[in-house]
């Protein structure tokens, strides 16, 4: 099975292609301009794997939480590819794919920086049970879900490394890695469970309402 995976939820973006159990990937830390990289990377990976776009069986996408614009860039690109190839689109939690890099039996706090002094956080214990989240919370609140020792991953763990360490946690060495290989694997597993969706129906999981306020009173009516 060939699964293409796209993750633009955080500051490091990536595209991965999983053919059988082999994953090839591209990633980069960027501040803007993901739209210039995703499709060129996908085409490079397909060529490198010696397959055609039409040989892709499913597209996986990090559906959130994460940067609003980033999520939309990833989802619209992935949806366009899946629509045209005629395959399902599999949404995967962006915290779940990052969590999947850590061994299952390790209590793990996964965080993406949500700006404004908050993180998108999700905590699981050694049995895989959720301790908190996924939620848009201050990092202190997310860290308080954990009992040391624990591992923290996701680029939010790097941003708040001193808080993690002070709470008795350890920041994973590859916390900033975009984990597109894991995303592709989770997408393949999701597809097997029937979680593939019609590409037009996949929506971002924002976890945060839009910042929209009615205009100030103009004084006349």
């Amino acid at each position: 099975m060939n699964v293409l995976a796209i993750d633009t939820a955080g500051p490091v973006i990536g595209v991965g292609l999983r053919c059988g159990d082999v994953v090839i990937a591209r990633s980069a830390r960027i501040t803007r301009g993901a739209e210039a990289l995703l499709v060129p990377w996908a085409r490079e990976l397909v060529e490198e794997a010696g397959i055609a776009m039409s040989d892709i069986d499913a597209v996986g996408v990090a559906a959130g939480p994460g940067a609003f614009t980033g999520l939309r860039v990833g989802i619209s690109t992935a949806a366009g590819l899946a629509m045209a190839i005629g395959v399902p689109l599999v949404p995967v939690g962006s915290l779940a794919s990052r969590r999947a890099r850590i061994a299952d039996d390790v209590p793990t706090l996964t965080m993406l920086d949500a700006r404004k002094g908050k993180v998108y956080g999700w905590a699981v214990d050694e049995a895989g049970q959720t301790l908190g989240g996924p939620a848009d919370v201050p990092p202190e609140e997310a860290i308080a879900w954990m009992t040391p020792p624990f591992v923290a991953t996701g680029e939010g763990a790097s941003v708040y490394a001193n808080l993690v360490t002070a709470a008795g946690g350890v920041v994973a060495d590859d916390a900033d890695d975009v984990a597109v290989g894991e995303l592709a694997r989770l997408a393949a597993e999701g597809l097997a469970r029937g979680e593939g969706q019609v590409p037009t129906s996949v929506q971002p999981t924002y976890l945060r309402p839009p910042d929209a306020k009615p205009p100030k009173n103009t004084g006349v009516k």
Binding site: V39, R72, A84
Partner: peptide, 10 residues
């Protein structure tokens, strides 16, 4: 723009 790119590439 990105939907269009995905479609054209696909």
């Amino acid at each position: 723009l990105n939907m269009a790119k995905g479609l054209a590439a696909g």
